[in-house]
Simulated assay, not measured.
Amino acid sequence: MSGNANIIVIEGRLTKDPNFMKTKNGKSLCKFGIANNRYYYINGSLQKEVYFFDLISWGYNAEKVASNLKKGSHVLVSGELRQNSYFTKEGNKRNSIYILALEIKNLSKKSLDNNGKIANNQTVENIIEENTDQVF
């Protein structure tokens, strides 16, 4: 029997430039965050709430995120919710929730060129293809 469904799809803008690194084992890892806006009306007045989410991508996906996205990039992400448990220096247990980004689409009208500068009149429909043979 398979596990329960764990799928998330979210749209937003990067809150800062992606943080790319290599693990001790040489695997590519990229951490980034997005802001997601929710609009609604109360008594005819438009209200806005902003939610912030932490995301992580691995391997090929991490490299593509780091090379193609920057602060303010508009993205559509599909992935899974993950939980990380750790202990503080004081010995207290903490939990954090993040999104494991499996597929990222750049919705920005402009993309980055090879020098990391915004290239005009280019649209990147799908900068990352889901890498199904990568083990997480």
Rank of each mutant, 00 (worst) to 15 (best):
I127H: 08
E63C: 07
V77E: 10
S111T: 08
G72R: 02
W58K: 08
T15Q: 08
I118Y: 10
S78I: 02
A66T: 00
G116C: 07
T88M: 02
N106R: 10
Q47R: 09
L112I: 04
N61T: 15
L81E: 07
K109H: 15
G91C: 04
L107V: 05
K16Q: 15
G116Y: 00
Y41F: 09
T123P: 05
N120E: 05
G44R: 03
K109Q: 15
C30H: 06
G116H: 06
F32Y: 10
K105S: 05
D113V: 04
Q122K: 11
N61W: 09
A119F: 06
N43K: 15
S67M: 12
V50L: 05
N37L: 09
N19Y: 15
Y98D: 06
H74R: 15
S85E: 11
Q47W: 02
G59V: 03
N131D: 14
K89I: 01
S96T: 01
L76S: 02
Q83S: 12
W58G: 02
K117M: 03
F52M: 08
G12L: 07
E90F: 00
N131E: 14
L55I: 00
S28W: 02
K117R: 10
Q122T: 13
Q47L: 11
D133F: 11
S108G: 11
N95W: 02
S45M: 15
Q83L: 13
N37I: 12
A5E: 15
K93T: 01
F53S: 00
V77H: 06
C30M: 04
N84G: 03
Y60I: 14
M21H: 15
L46M: 06
L46I: 03
E63T: 06
G44N: 00
Y41Q: 13
G33V: 08
I7V: 12
E125N: 08
Y51Q: 14
V65A: 07
N95C: 12
N25F: 10
Q134R: 01
F87H: 13
N106V: 13
N114R: 11
I7N: 14
L81D: 07
V50M: 11
S28R: 04
K71I: 04
E129M: 09
S111D: 08
I104W: 03
E49L: 07
I56C: 01
G116W: 00
P18Y: 05
E49H: 03
E125C: 12
V50I: 05
K109W: 10
S111C: 11
P18A: 00
A66V: 04
I128K: 10
E90L: 04
L76I: 00
K24T: 14
F87C: 15
E63L: 04
E130C: 09
D133Y: 06
R94Q: 03
N6Y: 09
K31A: 12
I7R: 07
E11I: 07
N120I: 05
L76G: 02
T88P: 04
K89M: 09
I118S: 10
S78G: 10
H74N: 15
L76R: 06
L102D: 13
F20R: 10
E80W: 12
K89P: 14
S57Q: 07
C30F: 01
Y86I: 04
N114C: 14
L29A: 02
G79C: 14
I99M: 03
N106Q: 09
Y40K: 09
S78Y: 02
N68T: 06
K31R: 10
T132S: 11
K27Y: 09
T88G: 03
K71F: 08
V50T: 15
